[in-house]
Amino acid sequence: MSQTLLQMNTIFISIIIEALPFVVIGVFLSALIQMFVTEEMIAKMIPANRFASAALGSCIGSLFPGCECGIVPITRRLVQKNVPLHAAIAFMLSGPIINPIVIFSTFVAFGDSWKMALYRCSLAIGVSIIVSIAISYLFNDQQLRKVMDHLSHNHSHGSHKMSLRSKIIGTIDHAIDEFFSVGKFLIFGALISSAMQTFFKTSALLEFGHSKVTAVLVMMALAFILSICSEADAFIASSFSGLFGTGPIIAFLVFGAMVDIKNLFMMLDAFQKRFVFTLVSLIAVCVFVGALII
């Protein structure tokens, strides 16, 4: 076994060991909330005013420490329950970032520094409010795909009718399912990241790093492709911090938590195509501009 491969494995394993605890805590908490908090509770809290609901939607996301794939189905059900579309979108965009687990994992990943966590949160809130307000002018609330009926039927025997015991069992089952579906993306991302660091020449990567514009674009594309859960992506991002500056890394952390391959499919499943593509472009532009300013 060559030394280089051993090296790559060492980086790979250390990313996994650091990130995995956050994933496990994350899947447990999100499973708990899935079981015990209903969409009706949120629907009641959203005010009618367009700007207030965009802001509040962004904040309520913090009650759902989930990652970007777990939050799409919740968002869909919120819209079904007549929460205004733009408020639900604000919730969907900020939820995966503005929550205690993600903030703590970002803090730990960047060597006990609040700087990156702070930048990440500020940009996320900014993007989510701007995109949400834009959506409220561009679209009416009827953007769900109609074929979702069978799912809402299934959901009709909902969580509140279950006994506590079966709720707890449901929570654990749910956590294990999510551990596997989230874990594979983390591992895949860690593999790519460790391979890039081991096999790419620094000079080749620095070419990108030279211009901030290309660096931000590269990191956004990477975030989209890698599809790492927002609880764990800070550890991947920090492993790139020798190669890229703050702006590109924040772009990775914010864009990846809002849009990536796996949640794009879930959004396309829930919403109409035209809506999803407008949404993704809006997010991309906002993150890009924000990252350049940082």
Binding site: M35, C69, P73, H155, G158, D177, S181, M266
Partner: peptide
């Protein structure tokens, strides 16, 4: 079946 009840599509993934 349990999971489907909660409309949570992770089983989709597999």
């Amino acid at each position: 079946n349990h999971d489907h009840d909660h409309g949570h599509d992770h089983s989709h993934d597999e």
